[in-house]
Design a protein around this nucleic acid. Structure first.
Lengths: 251, 251
DNA sequence: ATAACTTTTGGTAAAAATGACATTAAGTAT
DNA sequence: ATACTTAATGTCATTTTTACCAAAAGTTAT
């Protein structure tokens, strides 16, 4: 195919790559710090929570912040995200996904630090966070009552929430916030909390069940003061099958 | 509200933030280079194209690559993205959006460089790229015939394409690839190229027009060997209104 | 045991959206 | 004037969505 090609002579040489890279002093460029901040969403009793730490070190000592820290120069970023979250909160092996990079020149008082935000969803009951390293405390804070956070973490959190809502609408990630076994009403309450909407109970049930992503267990709720609902579990295998066939979950 | 709070004593101090930040030698951490890579999509004659450069400097001299370069330590990343694209290709003032960060330890032979990918959509006819700085050439390459790219740029491009298709489906970004005035058939051809699908002409028309996002001009196509179609333009104001009311574009 | 109560669960009917396709309209080319 | 091409509009059957009802199944109180 003929392409539209525009090929002009070099006009000016001003980049660090204009001469062979190994002859240049990179000092001028290689002065960045890189960090990771983790936005961990949890869900408990119909409320969406965020995992925050109370900072035990400068800068912003004593303030609320997302769990985050600097990446080592020989460490991959995703690995760092896991390590840092584990070091500060004890939580391990989460599925984490990037949301955005934050790189304002003055966002960190100690120098030029650009940070990558990762988000994750967990069932609060399945993990037991505890403060360690320089974290003075680890808390599940209600999303509705969020204090001001250190650095630009308030902005990071706000953006991550938008990403979460996007994801939740188009992929069945919501299931990750629920216990293994759950009732349809639980799932509905979760989605209503996540997206602040309300759904008709009967129609929600039909929609979800028609996707065939749930396995009906031979087991009912216990200790409820009314008719107990049937319990279900998420059919991960069926989901992977559908995805590979180009299925797209929509709520 | 009572929160589930877990607050344990410090167990170990091992982070760089465990002592006041101004007393620490950060040298160990502040060794990163940060770069930006731009994935600029263009559209011309029913084909999706990518703006690539032929590298005129090491590393990967002579190879195809996304326009990208290192960020200055006192420069905001978005500003750098604009500058670098302008320096290398002469294209200015694009609306660019982040897609992802790439940070593998060995992704750059000159040292630890993490890069942020930005993507943008432009109407090829509206811009006239020309190689400058250390770019030896600038080319619009057809997406279907993409060569192997320098660094991890092939992966970056692949991911950006997925993001583009997502965005195009849920926001009317497609309009940015068309000239000011266009016929409905042009819009349809664009979406069909972007998403490799085909739509029924009559139904596509109804769907698009029912969104009220197009302004019908009192003007028709010229120089077509058949009945000329009515021209439309995108109603940006109406779009912003709808968005602020929580409207979501779906195709 | 029975009645009252609450929530689950299955169903139906109207309304809305979708999709396939036919028809008419409006221009160009001969 | 006629043929031809694509635009533009309309119709209709089908599917999907939505609102709502009622029976079923358990718990609790009497």
């Amino acid at each position: 195919m003929a392409e539209k090609t525009i090929d002009r002579p070099l006009t000016e040489v001003k980049s660090q790559f204009a001469v062979p890279y190994y002859e240049i002093s990179y000092d001028k460029f290689f002065q960045f710090g890189v960090s990771v901040d983790c936005v961990v969403f949890g869900y408990h009793e119909n409320r969406l929570k965020i995992l925050l730490i109370k900072r035990g070190a400068e800068p912003y000592k004593g303030m609320w912040a997302l769990p985050g820290d600097l990446v080592y120069p020989n460490e991959n970023i995703e690995v760092a995200a896991q390590r840092i979250l584990r070091d500060l909160t004890g939580i391990e092996d989460l599925y984490m996904e990037q949301t955005k990079v934050y790189g304002k020149v003055d966002r960190h008082p100690a120098g030029r630090v650009i940070t990558t935000a990762y988000y994750s969803l967990i069932d609060i009951a399945k993990h037991d966070p505890h403060a360690s390293a320089w974290a003075e405390g680890v808390y599940w804070l209600d999303l509705a009552e969020m204090p001001k956070l250190a650095f630009d973490h308030s902005e990071i959190l706000k953006d991550a929430l938008v990403v979460l809502q996007q994801r939740v609408r188009h992929q069945p990630v919501g299931f990750e916030l629920l216990p293994e076994k759950f009732a349809l009403a639980d799932l509905q309450a979760l989605y209503e909390a996540l997206l602040n909407e309300t759904y008709d109970k009967a129609n929600f049930r039909k929609r979800i069940l028609s996707m065939n992503l749930l396995i009906s267990l031979k087991e009912n709720q216990k200790d409820v003061p009314h008719r107990p609902a049937r319990l279900y579990k998420f059919d991960k295998q069926r989901y992977d099958e559908l995805i590979s066939k180009g299925f797209s979950f929509e709520l």
